[in-house]
Amino acid sequence: MNIALVVGLCVILLGLIVGYNIMAQQRQRVESSKRQEMAKYIAVIDATEELIGNAHNLPYSGTLLVCLNQKILDALKTMHDIDKTDRSLPQRISDVQAQINQIKQTYQNKESTSFRVPDSDREAISMLKLVKRLRAVIKAEHTKGRLPTQAFVSENSRLEQMQMKINIENVLKRVNDAKIKGQMGTAQQLLKKALDVVSSKSDPYCQSAKESLSAMLEEVNTSLSKGHEANRPKNDENKELDELFAPKKKW
């Protein structure tokens, strides 16, 4: 009788141990999944804050700033739903919401900064990459239904024109530098490539740029016809041109 009792107790104890281990493993899986989800949204917030931090480098519209901050707000709210124990999240949510409200009041028909011509090809490429990231964000937010269609179309068009302006203004700077150095061949190739790009556009900026570029090209051609040496661009210059004027992805 005592042996049977001991065996029974051992079986019960073993069952409790197994059950406890199963529950512990389940809790670990849940916690691991929660940490992974939290890490994903933290990465989203960090990347978006980095984009917002570049608002002094490029003209950001109020629509774009609201979109970026709303993306952070949505991530924070999701994190709060995942982990109710984090007491810092409610305050952060409140702060971001207040920031969004302030942007809506401050940036009506106003941009974060004025457009600045890039100082070098490297800076121009960096600016173009930033614009590309911004266009990817607004496209994703529009797809998720967080950005109205009209706002998306308007902002996407504004960013596309900014890409064009970065390219053209950088070309104008390079052309002037080449002319100062007497590199008329380089200036000619730059102008021809820029004209190929703006000729297919009909917006006011491109039409104005087309006139300026055409006049500059005529001046360069005249100089070359008078016997100025046409210096061919080096391979690295051609590579930079190809990167600057690579076909942009249509959103």
Rank of each mutant, 00 (worst) to 15 (best):
V131P: 06
I125S: 11
P90A: 06
M127L: 11
K144A: 11
F115C: 01
I103T: 00
A98D: 00
K144F: 05
F115G: 10
S120K: 06
A136W: 08
S94Q: 08
K129D: 15
V117E: 14
S94I: 11
L130S: 05
Q105N: 08
K144G: 07
D95L: 04
R92V: 01
R146Q: 15
A124H: 02
A140C: 05
V137H: 07
N109M: 10
D119A: 15
Q102T: 01
N109F: 13
R116S: 12
S112M: 02
R146N: 11
V137P: 02
L89W: 01
S88N: 09
T106F: 14
V131A: 05
L130N: 08
N101V: 11
G145H: 01
L134Y: 04
D121S: 10
D121K: 14
R92T: 01
E141G: 08
A98P: 06
V153N: 12
I100R: 01
T149N: 15
V96N: 03
R122N: 11
S126A: 00
N109R: 14
F152G: 06
S112L: 00
K139F: 15
L130A: 07
Q97I: 02
V153D: 15
R92W: 08
K132E: 10
I100S: 07
V153W: 15
A98S: 06
L147R: 01
T85Y: 06
L128M: 09
P90K: 03
P118R: 01
T143G: 07
V153F: 15
L147P: 03
N156W: 05
N156V: 08
E111Q: 10
D119N: 14
N109Q: 12
A98C: 02
L134P: 15
P90E: 05
V137I: 12
V153H: 15
A140F: 02
D95H: 09
K139G: 04
K132R: 12
Q97P: 04
R158E: 13
A98L: 02
L130Q: 07
E111H: 12
Q99K: 10
N109W: 12
T85E: 08
R122W: 06
K129N: 13
R87G: 05
K139R: 15
E155P: 01
